[in-house]
Amino acid sequence: MSTPNSNGRVITMGQAIKEALAEELRRDPTVYVMGEDVAEAGTAFKVLKGLVDEFGPDRVIDSPISEPGITGLGVGAAMTGMRPVVDIMFGDFSTLIMDQMVNQAAKIHYMSGGKLKVPMVLRTTMGATRRSAAQHSQSLHAWFSHVPGVKVVVPSTPYDAKGLLKTAIRDDNPVVFFEDKMMYQLKGEVPEEEYTIPLGVADIKREGTDITIVATSSMVQVSLAAADKLAEIGISAEVVDPRCTFPLDKDALINSAKKTSRALVVDEGYERYGVTAELASVIADGAFYYLDAPVKRMGAMDVPIPFSPVLEDLTVPTPDTVFEMAKTLCGVN
């Protein structure tokens, strides 16, 4: 894949997401955005601020607080010629839309023997440490990743977010696009020219030789910071970002683990039955004879996310905890 030149243009993750939406709204008249406070308010996170000014309230549509309703409406619109982008403010509200996503959107293509399609994007958020407590802080991407018929994107940089969102909108399947709400202000180089990134292609965010750290979404940034610290003590860490939990670029994970002989998987979802378990299993299965140590995994602590900052910060992996785990895995005391 050739990477377009950004010519040094640096924008935030939030701006990259808005730019992807604007480009797709401009390109394809069947694309629309619907959600709570997406128009004048530009979402609760202000990510879409100004989008309605260009495209008007018929295409950037404020909805009632009816998550199942707008998701169901999106499914039906997608089946009949539109390309909806449904905005679910907090990933925690996934609980409300699961029937429409799991029993409807995910299955309609299969149940109809391939006759009907649901080209819909569901944008939602993940990520803790915003002091938003138990019902506004979870990372529930594993739930969707579990369901055949759905694709799941977990971007970690502004560049990836823009290219992947554009691809997601053009995809003929339901795609859930998870934005870590703590990364909206993250800056990175993003070209102005048109580009897309295929779903299911991992990206090596940092090359290394001693240990593979597979990380998703905000955990990529955490792992890159850990890799800097590891380098200071002579450990060369490779950070691999799958970018999608499905389709999953298994080869990239396995090949990296074969090269380094050690693997650690870091993800912000709950560790129990989570994304880390699946990715670790893929690596253990595919790179077994090359591994010098068991595959380790780090996810969110298996507790409801607490409010108190002192407690909340304990629940997610940090550069320090990832550093310590990687160090141990490499046999360094």
Binding site: T30, Y32, D58, P68, G69, I70, T71, G72, L73, G74, V75, G76, A77, A78, M79, T80, G81, M82, P84, D99, Q100, N103, Q104, I108, M111, S112, L116
Partner: peptide, 22 residues
């Protein structure tokens, strides 16, 4: 499509109507 979730197609029908209108 028939739908085995009681009431499950209300959103789909409204979505189809939304498409038709748009």
């Amino acid at each position: 499509g028939a739908n085995a979730i009681v009431g499950g197609s209300a959103g789909i029908a409204a979505g189809a109507a939304f498409s038709a209108k748009r």
